[in-house]
Write a protein that binds this DNA or RNA. Structure first.
Lengths: 236, 236
DNA sequence: CGAAACCTTGACAATGTTCAATCACTGTGG
DNA sequence: CCACAGTGATTGAACATTGTCAAGGTTTCG
């Protein structure tokens, strides 16, 4: 990997050349097939992970053995930043598993922490990115409390579209399987299945396996955003 | 206000003396009675707010006029950081209202942004604090998806206790009114009312208005944490 | 004193979960 | 190549949880 690769990542842009050299030197690039455990609950504490290509899921296990999906990441996303400055070890641990073929880049947390302490530009980038992630979590919480299952699915679909309201007959594909998406949206797979049917009736969608056709985006938008404090395009 | 005041706030500790001077110079200290609007949806964009004493709530209004409680802050908490580096104006706006007599300190976002860009120590402090807030949001999401209403109330009560499990006959007081707490925990006031009764039966609590007596913390802990990925003391 | 806010309760509706059954599809090993 | 197991997905029925609406009690405060 060249320093150029990292410099092209927004998180590392403007970092000092010394930082980029160190990152380049100590970053580890890895490839996985779908379905592998990339980091377990012990390893995640020590690893910053950047997704170069593909999809992965972060999940925890509840006390009674259920899988709780914490996040799903793809190209350009990253995880592990919670363990920076986590001396009291209060950050929540998770397992990382590939849900498609995957290319990642990893760094030891200790190195990243040191670089952030030494490189002001890097620390600013992480601050910006973390503020942004925090906003998304706030939006997620709002959605969980005021939208029903069908609206949450519709909201997810909306955010897969471009932000031009006037489009007609958009066809798109769910980026990962429905069970995972259900859990990601805070509902059971059975609820997802029924809610998607309800949504397709309310908003004139055509569903065929993982393909969804939206004849009129405005109908969907109206159904989804009616209770929300934001309206489409609400991507942040 | 003296620079000492700010230096004693963890968020500003280790900031340069120049930063502290500027903050001291441009910070505005204010007092409010209960029930006042402190910042409206326009002002919040431009204001960093630190709570010196008392309680306040951040809320949004949904499209259909419902109040959505985003957060409740007290001494040592702050808000407004979402608007730092928010050039695209994607951060969610809110209204700030006092829910008790209140003493606050405010700074213009533009100043704070400038100070963070100039003062590396300050940027590191904000990064740490933001990572921590993000963790709490993640925990909140987990709770919303796996705990029922009674468990969420119990979890809130648990986190009001010290982290010593062996205590008996703890009496504590809800820090703000039940309607607000209900909305904060993502449920309707009626649901709160009934769920609190259910919780008191399940966990042998004595409820008298806003006072709650817990004869045996372990019972509560067992009831609350059974589905969770963490167990008490889970305060982060 | 009267209005407003807080809180509770009952009846009922809406929403989501659980459990069991079924089906389609995929990949594997014989 | 086929049988088979495993995964993903859907559906029905019973159930649990939460929300909504209406009513009423209590407290607070001007």
């Amino acid at each position: 990997m060249t320093p150029d690769f990292f410099q092209s990542i927004p998180l590392f842009s403007h970092a000092s050349s010394r930082t980029l050299q160190q990152v380049e030197h100590l970053a580890k690039r890895s490839f996985y097939k779908k379905g592998n455990v990339i980091l377990d609950q012990l390893q995640c504490r020590h690893t910053f992970l950047y997704v170069a290509k593909g999809w992965l899921k972060l999940f925890k296990e509840s006390a009674d053995g259920e899988e709780i999906i914490e996040d799903i990441l793809t190209q350009g996303h990253y995880c592990g930043e919670s363990f920076i400055f986590d001396n009291n070890k209060t950050a929540a641990i998770y397992t990382v598993q590939s849900i498609s073929d995957l290319e990642i880049m990893t760094l030891p947390i200790t190195l990243l922490e040191q670089l952030i302490v030494e490189d002001h530009a890097l620390s600013l980038n992480f601050l910006k990115a973390t503020l942004h992630k925090k906003q998304q979590l706030n939006m997620h919480i709002e959605h969980l409390t005021i939208q029903n299952a069908a609206q949450r699915i519709g909201c997810f679909i909306l955010r897969l579209c471009d932000d031009t309201i006037d489009q007609k007959n958009i066809t798109l594909r769910l980026p990962y399987d429905k069970i995972l998406l259900a859990l990601r949206l805070g509902m059971q797979p059975e609820t997802f299945s029924r809610a998607l049917i309800r949504l397709s009736k309310e908003c004139a969608l055509k569903i065929e396996d993982e393909y969804i056709t939206i004849p009129e985006l405005k109908i969907l938008m109206h159904y989804v955003c009616q209770h929300c404090s934001r309206t489409f395009p609400c991507t942040i």
